[in-house]
Design a binder for these strands. Structure first.
Length: 349
DNA sequence: ACCCTTACGACATCTGAACC
DNA sequence: GGTTCAGATGTCGTAAGGGT
């Protein structure tokens, strides 16, 4: 079974979700020592919190050092340690003593030359790695509940059109519409009548970019028959589709001018394969990026796995979480209203 | 029934700034 | 300059779980 304790990607996707982490901190009620803009916990506090031996936490540090460092684990020494100690001793005066004193009622680490310090994310990260601690198990369940709550609150329960919540979506969708026009025009003019020609060539583009045809894509995202495939795509994917459509339209036109007659649909398929070969290297970097963004975001936001892109699933960045869930994310209607205003302003000039 | 692995705790030893 | 003490690291024992 895949869960937080054995999936690096899932752990990152909880920890990169800043809105969720903040909510978890507010609800958990385990106050840290505020130092350099973050809430900090010493190694001993962390061990006590999860009711495990200090050695156990240390072993996690040995085995998952890099991950924990990325989350915000730090080893304080020298000047930084001195500063930290000062902050700690001040905190003792304002009555948060339990957190920073050990059993002998001493301030922890006064004479130590180094102290392991966790920020809140690293504290949660530890909770995701501990296998048998009951407390850690509780914290994990709690974290996931909050993450689900946050998602539901931000999205009103549906993640289907989460792709539309970032600033870039509307402009990308508008661009795509005009490039789509170029594409369908070229198909109209240079390919003999065949009612399947649009769908088949569009599928070729989809397969070239993300390995699925429209039908497969619909299935992965569980779209109803009336729901538009394009409306669920991320701006980066839309832009790449635009490039393909525009590029292929021009390529087809060139071929037509050499050929002096319309192509059949099966010839057009061959022409597309040539186009694909010719542009393979050009599109490669953008395609890799689009695949990775699409696979990772759909996993994190839509709980949807694109089987053919499973090697591309990685973590969703904190920026992405903000982009789609944060203050700047919006519902499409607001986005459109905003854009209409822009058009109006331009028109008035 | 047996062996192996995993996760963890207990104990021991070494290190090196900070403090006196 | 010696003492102190948290941290780093290593080793061993054990309980639980899984596979054969």
């Amino acid at each position: 079974m895949k869960d937080l304790t054995n999936s690096h990607i899932d752990r990152k996707n909880v920890l990169n979700n800043n809105a969720a982490v903040k909510e978890i901190y507010d609800q958990l009620g385990f106050t840290g020592i505020f130092f350099e803009n973050k809430y900090r916990y010493t190694l001993n506090q962390v061990a006590k919190f999860y009711e495990v031996d200090v050695r156990t936490i240390k072993r996690l540090l040995e085995d998952n050092g890099e991950e924990l460092k990325t989350s915000g684990y730090e080893l304080f020494t020298g000047a930084k340690l001195k500063l930290f100690k000062e902050v700690v001793s001040q905190q003792r005066d304002i009555d948060v003593p339990l957190l920073i004193q050990d059993d002998e009622n001493e301030v922890v680490g006064v004479k130590s030359n180094k102290i392991s310090v966790f920020n809140f994310k690293a504290l949660l990260n530890i909770g995701m790695l501990l296998q048998t601690s009951e407390k850690a198990k509780e914290v994990r369940a709690f974290m996931l509940n909050v993450v689900i709550d946050v998602l539901n609150k931000k999205l009103g329960g549906s993640t289907k059109f989460i792709n539309q919540r970032e600033e870039e979506f509307v402009p990308a969708a508008i661009r795509e519409i005009s490039y789509r026009k170029e594409f369908t025009n070229a198909i109209d003019l240079y390919i003999t009548n065949n009612k399947f020609k649009y769908g088949q060539l569009t599928d070729k583009i989809y397969k070239s970019i993300f390995k699925e045809n429209a039908k497969e894509y619909r299935k992965v995202l569980d779209l109803k028959s009336k729901e538009s495939v394009r409306a669920t795509m991320y701006s980066e994917v839309l832009d790449l589709i635009s490039s393909y459509e525009n590029g292929f339209a021009e390529f087809l036109k060139d071929q037509f001018e050499q050929n002096q007659r319309q192509f059949t649909l099966s010839e057009a398929h061959e022409i597309f394969s040539n186009f694909e070969k010719l542009t393979n290297k050009i599109y490669e970097p953008l395609r890799e990026k689009a695949r990775s963004l699409m696979a990772s975001r759909d996993m994190a936001f839509r709980d949807a796995l694109h089987e053919k892109l499973k090697d591309y699933v990685s973590t969703v960045s904190p920026e992405d979480f903000d982009k789609f869930l944060g203050e700047k994310s919006q519902a499409l209607e607001e986005r459109l209203k905003e854009n209409i205003d822009v058009f109006k302003r331009l028109k008035d000039r």
